[in-house]
C-alpha cells in the first residue's frame, strides 16, 4: 500500500461487528439443538442437515457466480445458516433429493432472485420448507420416532407429533412436559428440544444478536391465547405449555421470526410483528387444516414487515406531541 494518509468522513472507528459474525453466532446458537437432533434421529439427521447446508452454499455460489455475476457471498455464512435452518424444519427421514429441491427453492427463489442477502422479503428457509410442504405433503408430515442412532434413515418408524395429537383430539396421548422439553417427542430435526433452543436463544440475547422483543411477544401471545382456550374448554384444548413447547414454536420464535432481513426494524414494530405471529399461529393450529402454523404465520408477517416499518417509527428525540 502507499504511504499516503487516509481520509474519510467520521466516524473513524467501528464496533467490529460484521454480517459474518452475526451469522456465525446464530449458527453457534443452533448447535445445542443440532446436537440434540443428531442424538435423537441419528444418521437421518446427519444426512438431511449436511445435504441442506451443502446444497444451499452451492446454489448461492453458483447463482452469484453465473447468474448475478456479483462478488462471492458465501463467506458471510448466510447460505450455511439458511441450509441449517431449513434442515431444522424438515423431518429426518426426508429423501435427500427432496432436501436439495428445498434448498434450491430457499436460496434461488427465497433469496437470490431478490438480489441476495438483505433484499429478500421472506425468510428463505421457510420459503423452502413451505414449498416442500405443498409439493411433498406426505413425506413432509411423517415424522420418525426419536430413537437415536438406532433409527434408520428412510425406513424409520414414524409416529404422530404432539400437535397432530391435539388436532386429532387425543389429548390423553400427549407426552409429558419433561419429554417435550428434553426432546423425547417426534418432530422436525431442530424443533424437538425446547431446552436446547432456549439455551441458544439465551446465547443470542447475551451476544446482542437479537433483542427480546420478537420471541417474548410471540410466546406471550401464544401463552395468553391458549390459556383463554383452555379456560373455555379444558377437554378439547391442552394447557398453554403444550402449545409453547410443541412443534416449531421455540425454533420459530427464537430463530426464524428474528431473522434480521425479514423482521421489523424498531422495537415497537417487533412487538407488533411478534403479536400477530402468535395470533396467526394459534388460529392455524386450532382452526386450520394443518396441525402447525408457525411457518405460515412468519411468512405472512414477513409480508407485512415493510408496512410495519413504514408506519411504526422510533420515538424521535425532542418530538413535541402537542401542537
Amino acid at each position: 500500500m502507499d504511504n499516503l494518509l487516509k481520509v474519510a468522513p467520521s466516524p473513524h472507528v467501528h464496533s467490529g461487528d460484521s454480517v459474518a459474525k452475526n451469522m456465525v453466532r446464530v449458527i453457534v446458537a443452533l448447535l445445542p439443538a443440532y446436537a440434540v437432533a443428531l442424538y435423537s434421529f441419528g444418521v437421518g439427521a446427519l444426512v438431511v442437515s449436511l445435504t441442506a447446508m451443502a446444497s444451499c452454499v452451492l446454489f448461492e455460489y453458483l447463482i452469484q457466480r453465473f447468474l448475478l455475476k456479483g462478488k462471492c457471498t458465501i463467506n458471510n455464512y448466510s447460505a450455511l445458516l439458511t441450509g441449517l435452518l431449513l434442515s431444522f424444519n424438515l423431518p429426518s427421514n426426508l429423501p435427500w433429493w427432496i432436501v436439495v429441491i428445498g434448498s434450491a427453492v430457499a436460496i434461488g427463489i427465497g433469496k437470490m432472485c431478490f438480489g441476495g442477502l438483505g433484499n429478500n422479503p421472506f425468510n428463505p428457509a421457510l420459503v423452502g420448507r413451505v414449498f416442500l410442504l405443498f409439493s411433498f405433503p406426505v413425506q413432509m408430515t411423517t415424522w420418525p420416532r426419536p430413537l437415536g442412532w438406532a433409527s434408520s434413515y428412510l425406513d424409520a418408524e414414524t409416529m404422530a407429533t404432539p400437535l397432530s395429537l391435539i388436532k386429532g383430539g387425543k389429548l390423553n396421548e400427549l407426552p409429558d412436559v419433561l419429554n417435550m422439553f428434553l426432546a423425547n417427542t417426534p418432530g422436525s430435526l431442530g424443533e424437538i428440544s425446547a431446552l436446547a433452543l432456549l439455551v441458544g436463544g439465551i446465547y443470542l440475547l447475551a451476544t446482542k444478536v437479537i433483542t427480546w422483543h420478537i420471541p417474548v411477544s410471540i410466546l406471550l401471545t401464544v401463552a395468553a391465547f391458549s390459556a383463554i382456550l383452555y379456560g373455555i374448554d379444558p377437554t378439547v384444548y391442552p394447557l398453554p405449555h403444550v402449545y409453547l413447547l410443541s412443534g416449531g414454536m421455540m425454533l420459530g420464535a427464537i430463530f426464524m421470526a428474528t431473522d434480521y432481513v425479514t423482521s421489523p426494524m424498531t422495537h415497537r414494530g417487533m412487538l407488533i410483528y411478534g403479536f400477530f405471529i402468535g395470533i396467526i399461529t394459534m388460529i392455524i393450529r386450532v382452526w386450520g387444516v394443518y396441525p402447525e402454523g408457525m411457518s405460515f404465520a412468519i411468512l405472512i408477517m414477513n409480508a407485512f414487515t415493510p408496512i410495519i416499518n413504514k408506519y411504526v417509527k422510533p420515538k424521535r428525540f425532542g418530538r413535541v406531541t402537542k401542537k
Binding site: M1, K6, A8, H12, V13, H14, D17, S18, V19, N22, N76, G115, G116, L117, G118, N119, T211, Y260, V261, T262, S263, P264, M265, T266, H267, K313, P314, K315, R316, F317, G318, R319
Partner: peptide, 29 residues
Amino acid sequence: MPEALSERVEMDNCIRCGKCVSVCCMGLQ
C-alpha cells in the same frame, strides 16, 4: 491511527438488522 485501523471495510448489502435504528440517539432511522 495506525494503518491497520484506518482502512474502512468494504460495505455489504443492508441486512436490515435495525441496529442503526436502536443506537440512533435522535430516534431517526
